[in-house]
């Protein structure tokens, strides 16, 4: 497998083969990120498409500081954020009361039965802002201060959104695992 530096240089030289190689190497990984940040598949495809175009356009600025995986992921996450910002007026932040309270909070052992696909489905059911705040905080590791700047919200709102996202996720996980148990037990 060619070294990533060779692929990057090939891309910078406009080499079609290397451009496709770079896409093939990161497409699946980054599409998962796009799905994680978007509410539907069409939006995820748009984010991936725009994200990759930005990656190719900004490749010349990549300084080989830090991992390339992290660099491309940041571009895609930023693209998802831009997408969210451009549409945020269209979304209404769902009131927590609208989230059905079906099950009690799950035990730790309940998490063990969940696969990545299940987690992805659960996270995508979150309201857009909660989903993004949770992803930025829990998955990407940004602080509330950074998130407030990225999303143009206050730190308090970021904390509140995260808290509500966690509650929803815990409930969804509980209902999901309960449903699974029921299915298994017949």
């Amino acid at each position: 497998m060619p070294e990533i530096k060779n692929i990057i240089n090939g891309c910078l030289l406009g080499n079609r083969r290397d451009q496709e190689l770079l896409y093939r190497r990161y497409a699946a990984k980054l599409y998962a990120v796009c799905l994680q940040y978007s509410g539907n598949d069409e939006e995820a495809r748009d984010i991936l498409q725009e994200g990759f175009i930005k990656i190719f356009e900004n490749l010349v600025h990549y300084k080989y500081e830090g991992s390339f995986d992290g660099w491309v992921r940041r571009i895609v996450v930023n693209t998802a954020l831009e997408k969210y910002r451009s549409k945020h007026n269209l979304y209404r932040i769902d009131d927590i009361d609208q989230i059905p309270e079906q099950n009690a909070e799950p035990d730790n052992e309940d998490y063990a039965g969940l696969g990545a696909r299940d987690l992805m489905e659960i996270i995508r059911e979150l309201p857009p802002r909660y989903r993004i705040v949770f992803n930025l905080f829990a998955i990407e590791g940004y602080s509330h201060k950074e998130i407030s700047g990225m999303m143009s919200i206050s730190e308090g709102t970021s904390k509140s959104n995260l808290s509500r996202a966690r509650v929803i996720l815990q409930r969804r996980v509980g209902s999901y695992t309960g449903l699974k148990k029921n299915l298994i037990n017949g």
């Binding site: 699946a28 599409y31 998962a32 796009c34 991936l48 696969g115 987690l119």
Partner: peptide, 9 residues
Amino acid sequence: GLKDYEVLP
């Protein structure tokens, strides 16, 4: 859980 998750576009 999502760390290594990949989905073919």
